[in-house]
Amino acid sequence: MSTKRRMCSISLAAAIALVGETSARGQPAMAPVPTECATPGADGQPAVGFPNLVRAMNLRHRIVVLAIGSAVVGAGRPGGGYYRLVERFLESTFKGLDVVLVQRGFSGELARDGAERIRLEVARSSPDMVFWQVGTADAMAGIDPAETQEIVRSTIRWLHEHQIDVALIGLHYTPSLRDDPQYQAMRQAISDVARSEGVLRIRRYEVGETLDRLRRQPSDAIAATDLGSLGDACMAEHLARSLATGLFARRRPVDVDKPGSGAR
């Protein structure tokens, strides 16, 4: 493991430890964002809330999250894949909260196929929230951005109708695609649909771009780091923090029950 990656993991672990400590005293708090991930990583706050996540947390002290998109390598990574970091972060931040993560990622899956599978997986695992990595495969396969946007929009609406919150995880960053019109159009399409539907979008591209800029500075130790892995760690960091912030803001007793929840 590279020095910087280790630092990132350590800082995240320290953040988790710190949050756990304060939570134990009944006053939840979050540690500062690790330096490497300091770029704004999410769109949507403070307007984005997670009513279904809050409801599940208050009623059951248990939230079920469905992850769709690229397959995630869990083994061989400290603490598992990046979604596991999110899981641990939330469980440490909210004492007594059980976060159930259902991973159903298939790399290379287009939005149209992912959308079909989301509907099925919702029936299978009754999630309170969906993390959807979307756009990269469509952009690589040359799908019309308007077509992908419409699929994402209708899927978000379907999920909201079924009382499920959504976080979109945007396109990956790689320097060679900075000037690729198809890729940038897809990126814009995902950003637009997230904004118009009022859902959280993790700005994976922007995070990657910042990390790449830091890496190009000769004196910076980040130069030796695997950009993809660090980007994933930062993405997890931003995702976890966005969720935690939304949950802190909205945490209150609710009077509406949600039937049929709970992973099987």
Binding site: S70, A71, V73, F106, S107, H172, T174, P175, G228
Partner: peptide, 23 residues
């Protein structure tokens, strides 16, 4: 050749390079 590591991620091959023992 294309200077694009996303090709590995696209086809789920990234684990071969990031976690080669397990992969």
């Amino acid at each position: 050749l294309l200077d694009n590591p996303l090709l590995l991620e696209w086809f789920n091959a990234s684990a071969v390079f990031t976690a080669p023992v397990e992969a």
